[in-house]
Design a binder for these strands. Structure first.
Lengths: 345, 345
DNA sequence: TGTTAGCACTCAGTATTCAGGAGTGCTAAC
DNA sequence: GTTAGCACTCCTGAATACTGAGTGCTAACA
């Protein structure tokens, strides 16, 4: 792949993509000839562009327009060309400091991350809440709410909390729930949340006796909720700033799709084993997003991936910057979360 | 006000508003002459329309266009003309049934209400979460989360729950927090949440001794959170379906404004003593919403107002339907919430 | 006196034409 | 291999004319 194109073609393609990312309008040979890196006459450039078109990297809206890069070009650009623009020290500092200050609640940190991502990039951001199942139980409280329902409040060693409404058997009141949760705390503290069900059940079985079934159901309910991860989408309306979405119809279908969150959640929860993924245009198997690119990156607690975040923008997005921001943000968020974890061992 | 206009003018104005609500394009005399209620020639109607324009109810985009109703017309329409379109039995039934099924969590009910509001009306809906301060305490749990912070979980007699992160003095661990919450439960159960602070403090003062200040701070924290009401905004992108927002710039500023939620929250939390309020265009003291109308209605638990909800649409909204839907929805939500309350007395 | 038919007038919207300009591909010369 | 030159394409925007919906006014009518 790398040596499909000679150096000069590469350079020209890069310049075209760079220019198009900036202006969103077809790039002509004369424009390129003024580019400092390219010391060639327009005619020569035209020949090269003609080649690049034939090779499938460029497209022409009409005969007398300049060239527009297509997905193949962006793919090459992302894989081989772009220099991962590093952030300015200011930006790095901005991210670090704003993520460090208020770490009291995990949910807040996630929201803040999403806000910053979309704020810095001017695209749409999406952040997945961290997986709880690998966290360890620090404390659980069962609180009777109404006859037949109770609230389970789980605190993990990373300091995050989780609420789950549970159905409980009729007649099980606050007293019994307290007894049960005391038992759970005694036996399960320090276990991983996704191990609780199988660990706890045998331990409890003899103690809870006739209510074993009910307890089992409750644990099921808790387990189901532990698996759940939410997505935080911020800045969808940013897209209205780009000429790609000056058509209200397109804007509407984009917003509808993104706000449903379904596709983004799917993308963020599929773990393809890679830290950073770039999905360009139709590489998204979602027709509504065929004019968009989605860049995702995972974040960790300790050495373990626990969630991911991403940026959605037009295919003509500033890949270099987005990648740099995501990496920095992932690093920062991982640190913050891991720090939380350590401080409560 | 009522008798500013004679019957015929009223009827013509009504027809104009009705037609404009439907089509969003200026209404001409010929169109009106075909209207079944109006047995007049175009010429006569033109005279009347000319009068209505002079009286300030209609406007003309340009000489050879039809007439467009303005805010004054809508105001008259809302106050004196529109027959509050009653919902079809289907719609009423739909609202009742969908709000009754899943009542497990108050937050869910509110979200569902917002979704249905915007679904039925095709406008943007906004629902305020119910005030907690008038609810009565059923149970409180204090759970240690990290060194220095704890989670307070409050369950009210209406079955709703509330979480608040609190700063606690260093060294106060789970044991002490449990002791404290046991004390609170014993003393404060059944009290109104907004009375707890002043009720509890004297009672506790001698018992908590040296930690009185810290407890005081915690109560402050809880009180502050009790006051908080959130807004749930759904269907903002619905507005992109209306020609008023075929301009992306307008769409963007609308979406930005609405999604911030600031103005809507202010509108929903100001209690003007009236059950139902219609704010037309510039009656909203928010320039971003000068082309919108906001209709709000309060909902109750028992006889007490505890929250409100609203619909935002273009000034050319179907006021009759919106008012009918809101009234029905408020009624249903009030019933559901009051039912929850009663069932736990 | 209120209503209506008729008519001249206005003006947004659409289609048409035209000139300008940006950009291309090709050819021939360097 | 590179470049200058040139004919060609086709988008864009301005100017122009045409159409049709709608008005206001006047005069006739009931």
């Amino acid at each position: 792949m790398t040596e499909l194109l000679d150096v000069r073609k590469m350079r020209i393609l890069e310049a075209i993509v760079d220019d198009y990312i900036l202006t969103a309008s077809p790039v002509g040979s004369r424009t390129l000839s003024k580019h400092e890196d390219i010391e060639l006459s327009p005619a020569t450039i035209r020949n090269e562009m003609s080649d690049l078109t034939e090779l499938g990297f460029l497209e022409q809206p009409h005969t007398s327009a300049g060239r527009v890069p297509n997905e193949k070009a962006y793919r090459l650009y992302v894989n081989n060309i772009m220099d991962r623009a590093s952030l300015t020290p200011d930006e790095t500092e901005y991210i670090r400091s704003h993520l460090n200050t208020k770490v009291s609640e995990v949910g807040e940190v996630i929201k803040q991350t999403a806000r910053m991502l979309s704020g810095i990039t001017n695209y749409t951001s999406v952040v997945l809440t961290p997986q709880m199942k690998r966290a360890r139980l620090k404390h659980i409280s069962l609180i009777s709410v109404t006859e037949g329902s109770a609230l389970a409040v789980i605190v993990t060693n990373s300091g995050s909390t989780m609420n789950t409404m549970l159905d409980v058997p009729k007649g099980m009141g606050q007293k019994q729930l307290e007894h049960l949760s005391a038992l759970m705390n005694e036996r399960c503290c320090g276990y991983r949340l996704d191990d609780i069900r199988k660990t706890l059940l045998p331990l409890l079985q003899d103690e809870v006796g006739e209510q074993a079934d009910a307890v089992m159901d409750m644990l099921e309910g808790i387990s189901a909720d532990i698996e759940k991860q939410d997505v935080e989408v911020v800045g969808a309306t940013n897209m209205l700033n780009y000429p790609e979405y000056s058509d209200v119809g397109k804007a509407r279908s984009f917003l509808t799709e993104v706000e449903s969150g379904d596709y983004l959640k799917r993308v963020l929860t599929t773990d393809d084993g890679v830290e950073l993924t770039v999905r360009i245009g139709n590489e998204n198997d979602n027709p509504e997003l065929r004019d968009c690119s989605v860049v995702t990156v995972s974040y960790r607690v300790g050495d373990e991936k626990v969630g991911s975040m991403g940026v959605i923008g037009p295919t003509r997005m500033d890949y270099g910057k987005v990648v740099a921001v995501l990496k920095c943000m992932s690093e920062s968020l991982s640190n913050v979360l891991s720090g939380l974890l350590d401080s409560n061992k």
